[in-house]
């Protein structure tokens, strides 16, 4: 197991989580918790692959995946923002709905065969940097590079622009934001849509770049839920989100790759000779999410960092917040 190859693949897997997590960060910063990431991601993956198969254009697939997943998120927006329904239950319903829709419309897609995928390339010059180059800039999908660009963009947007200030305001104190003339409900819809679109992009990244194809529910395999957990670990910060996403991507790759070679560090590889240990490896990402949350809870209490104050609460103009 070459660490360079495994980290290179880990970054690609992490990019999936990166898009979904950044989307969830934006949506939650606006005060709307959307637990439907898994469902939106699955719908995005299905839409992207299905479009690419039928039209031959992966780009059209990416665009449609973002639109469709965004539209699904808007349903969540309608129910939670306008109808003031419970965000937790609505998000769960969205997961069921997204999964159901993808299974129904993705019927038969498993056997659809191969299609044109998103391009992969190396960045000239950068890929020659020792260690860093081969991991980050060599033969990566275009989505990975797009991910690199998105991290500072989102960070700058949230902390250093006026719309970013409004975004934080509607999540922390919607009443005050409203009084200042910010359209709280309209903006919340916008960010719910953006969150959904990014989850859709994450889905498209799976089916058209990282692990091409459509494998029903196995396509996402809980990545959406890990993204929801990562947001908490990231303390709603895009840079921490990026770090967490890539680390988890690497972990997921590690689990796949560690079972391959016959020898590990010169010793007989127990995971190769007894595949039953693999079940414990499978638990790792999920166990790690829990551990990371436990560790994060401690540092969050110490540094007094919490969720956006209005996260999960509907905003009704003129009604005193809780």
């Amino acid at each position: 197991m070459d660490p360079i190859i495994f980290l290179n693949a880990g970054i690609a897997t992490g990019t999936i989580l990166l898009f979904a997590t950044l989307g969830a960060v934006l949506s939650e910063r606006a005060g709307v918790l959307n637990l439907g990431v898994e469902g939106m991601m699955l719908l995005g993956a299905m839409t992207a692959y299905s479009t690419a198969v039928s039209t031959g254009s992966p780009w059209l697939g990416v665009v449609l995946a973002m639109l469709v997943a965004g539209a699904l998120a808007l349903l969540h927006g309608l129910v939670t923002i306008s109808f003031q329904a419970d965000q937790v239950v609505s998000g769960l319903a969205l997961t069921f709905l997204g999964t159901g829709l993808s299974l129904v419309f993705g019927e038969g897609l498993t056997k659809a065969g191969i299609t044109t995928l998103l391009p992969k390339f190396s960045i000239p010059g950068f890929s020659l940097i020792p260690a860093v180059g081969p991991i980050f800039f060599q033969n990566q999908s275009i989505m990975v590079y797009f991910g690199y660009a998105l991290i500072p963009l989102v960070w700058f947007y949230i902390y250093h622009t006026r719309p970013g200030l409004h975004l934080r305001a509607i999540g922390e104190n919607p009443g005050a934001a409203d009084a200042m003339g910010v359209h709280v409900l309209r903006l919340r819809y916008v960010y719910v849509f953006v969150g959904g679109a990014l989850a859709g992009l994450a889905g498209a990244t799976i089916s058209l770049a990282v692990s091409p194809g459509w494998f029903s529910e196995g396509t996402t395999g809980g990545l959406g839920w890990i993204a929801v957990g990562l947001v908490i670990f990231a303390q709603w910060d895009p840079l921490r989100a990026a770090f967490g996403s890539y680390a988890f991507g690497a972990l997921r790759r590690f689990i796949l790759d560690v079972q391959g070679p016959k020898e590990l560090f010169g010793l007989a590889n127990p995971f190769f000779y007894n595949p039953n240990f693999g079940y414990f490896l499978q638990m790792l990402p999920y166990a790690f999410t829990i551990i990371v949350l436990i560790l994060g809870a401690r540092s969050a209490t110490r540094r007094r960092i919490g969720a956006p104050a209005a996260l999960g609460l509907p905003y009704v103009r003129g009604q005193r917040g809780k």
């Binding site: 069921f96 159901g100 299974l103 129904v104 993705g106």
Partner: peptide
């Protein structure tokens, strides 16, 4: 398609 019950539940 086999996803129908799931879809209806959702």
């Amino acid at each position: 398609p086999s996803g129908i019950p799931r879809l209806i539940q959702g």
